[in-house]
Each structure stands twice: as C-alpha cells, then as structure tokens.
Design a protein around this nucleic acid. Sequence first.
DNA 1: AGCGGGATTTTCT
DNA 2: GAAAATCCCGCTT
Length: 189
Amino acid sequence: MSTLNFLNQQASVVASRLLGCIVEREIDGQTIAVKIVETEAYDQTDAASHSYRGKSPRSSVMFGPSGHLYVYFTYGMHYCCNIVTGPGGVGSAVLIRAVEPIKGIKYMQKIRNKNDVNLSNGPAKLCQALKIDKTLNGHYLAKPPIKLVIQPPIESEDIIRTKRIGISEAKEKPWRFYIKNNPYVSRIE
DNA sequence: AGCGGGATTTTCT
DNA sequence: GAAAATCCCGCTT
C-alpha cells in the first residue's frame, strides 16, 4: 500500500484532491518540481473521455490500476498527461492542465524557450516543460523518474469548479478544478 | 486584446 | 478522411 491510495476513487473526487500536490521529475541529472494548480476529470460514463467507447490501444492505461501516468499525443504535435484514477476496472483519469514551477525553473526555461506563466500554464506546455512523452505512458508515479508527492488538501474555498475546456461533448459537466488566484491556471472564466 | 490559420499524427468512422 | 482533452505566431483593431 502506498500513499497513492486515495487515487483509487472516482476521477471528479481525485481531480479536486490533486490540487496543490507536487510532481517531481528527474531528467538529465536535474530535479524538476512543480505544483498541480489545474485539473480535469474524465471517466467512462463521460462522452468527452477517451475511455467512453471502451478500451482501445491508446486508452488502455486508463483502464488499469490507479496511480499510473496516461500520456496521449494529440493535434499532431502535443502530449498531454493524466493520472489514472479508480475504482479498478473503470476507464478514468485526471488530466493535469496546469502546474506552477517550484524547482528546476532554469531547466524548464531552456527546454520551453519561454518564461513565467508560459512555462506550464497549459496541458501540452507542462508536458514539454517536464519532458513527458509517450515513453512515460503507464509509468507508476511512486518511483523515479517521475513521482507524485501528496500534499495537504487545498481549502475548499480556494478551489474553483467549472466546465472543462476544449471538448465538444459533455460540455456542461463541472469537472474542471483550479486553485483560486493562481497565475499559472490556463484560463479563467 | 482578439481572431485566424498552420503544424502534423493518432484514432475512429 | 476528419477531428482531436493544443499552442504559437502574425495580423488586425
């Protein structure tokens, strides 16, 4: 049993609880640390989810155990990363949409060739900043080179819950969560 | 500040 | 063959 146990519940619950948690990435002898500030939940009953039409080669990781990374490629050029949630046997995950850099900022500036909020205020941007690609698809987040470090929950009054971004189905589900007043959030209402 | 198009590949119809 | 859980740049106001 690991500290990642809480991931084994429904995605919309986990999405909120992941706010404020830290991701540690080891790459090229460097350690990068970021704080999760924006998430979206996707589950199998959800027409916007990659798991909605059942298991496929791309989405198969979503159907596996919670605590693993689901990385997908989209728009011909971008990766996005999700944390697989539970309960077991169900295709569900939480998309990490934005993070706040904590450590290794110079390294991220170099890879991204950008500064400030543009380092990581979007799902494809943060994947580039953390060098996340398909080789990490399915990685378990309790061990290097990329780990999830749980932090105390964010106060509920500091969590904003809204509709998700960039989808054409199930637009009304309020399954996007972000930390109030955090400058790295990809977009405010 | 806001709109519009291009990049470019995986997946599903 | 089209759309996709996106981003960036250049153009217009």
